[in-house]
Nucleic acid binder design. Structure first.
Lengths: 169, 169
DNA sequence: TATTGTTATACTCTATAACTATA
DNA sequence: TATAGTTATAGAGTATAACAATA
């Protein structure tokens, strides 16, 4: 189920990977790890993302839709299926009677911890072929890249640090 | 449609991104770029992958299934929809009358070139926030990482360089 | 009137199982 | 008998449009 080849980029003309092609292949590899670790727990990547988002948030359906980049009607079905499995629960909002909050159940929390652990272990294994100096340099550069782009788009890279939940108001 | 946050990893406790979390977020960012560039051309990521795989191959349905990591019945539908749009064509094999070869049409080739160009441009834009020295270091490290892991799994990172097509026999 | 969430509907993507035609 | 491909069927995931309840 894990896609092994990059497919779209890297038409394969050079003998050395370009940065764009390299990042594309790396991205597929990491995405494939996520896919297979989630599948081990009978989770799709989407369900895993849902649980991941809920780890440090108690969002409304609407906020969830924005966090996941989906239409609200898609989130209805997504949460339906997760709720049917006992991984999340809908909680009526007291502030606004139209709203519904979505929270992780204990079972959901266990499952997402498990998935995150497996994911981290397998990505770490991928990285073991690199010398420690490369890993340190890579961490620093990737961090700079993400921070700079997040800043450029006015996003919060560390949502749960300062104020508690509901970050995207 | 592009997922902005990493969601699963990065529970958000540190003030500095770990390498695993960073790679996860980077992977989501790159995947999101692929998604949105493909969507611009009314392609799903799956359709884009199909076209990408076909750029330098003339595989049978069966080979295509292995290349994409899908069941052959899934590939039937995938190719059906692409064929209906005029992006690929089925060609009966002369060697084995059971087999069907799948090839890119001219229109499909144009479209995938367009998609690849847009993808490269947008990923390059993401990278522009980095100093050139970081980009060079990143390219070198990512390349080492991919080559080492490919070698560890006995894979061919440069399929179309030596022998022509049908690499995964 | 505007917003929140759900429902109805439709399409893509995916898999399993059964089938047809060839080998 | 085994392999290549398709079909039938089922389910997840997604979106658009229409709706009910609440603001």
């Amino acid at each position: 189920m894990a896609p092994t080849s990059a497919a779209l980029p890297a038409s394969g003309e050079r003998e050395q990977l370009s940065l764009v092609d390299g990042l594309a292949q790396l991205s597929f590899a990491v995405h494939g790890v996520l896919e297979s670790r989630a599948a081990d727990l009978d989770l799709s990547v989407t369900q895993a993302r849902l649980l991941g988002v809920l780890r440090d948030r108690l969002p409304t359906m609407n906020e969830l839709a924005r966090l996941l980049g989906l239409d609200k009607s898609s989130v209805t079905g997504l949460v339906d299926r997760a709720e049917r499995r006992g991984l999340v629960a809908r909680v009526p909002s007291t502030e606004d009677k139209r709203s519904v909050l979505v929270k992780l159940t204990d079972e959901g929390r266990d499952l997402v911890a498990s998935a995150a652990g497996g994911f981290a272990a397998e990505v770490s294994a991928l990285l073991e072929v690199l010398p420690a100096s490369d890993r340190e340099a890579l961490a620093a550069i990737v961090s700079r890249l993400l921070v700079a782009n997040a800043a450029r788009r006015g996003l919060d890279l560390f949502p749960a640090s300062g104020s508690r939940d509901q970050s995207t108001r």
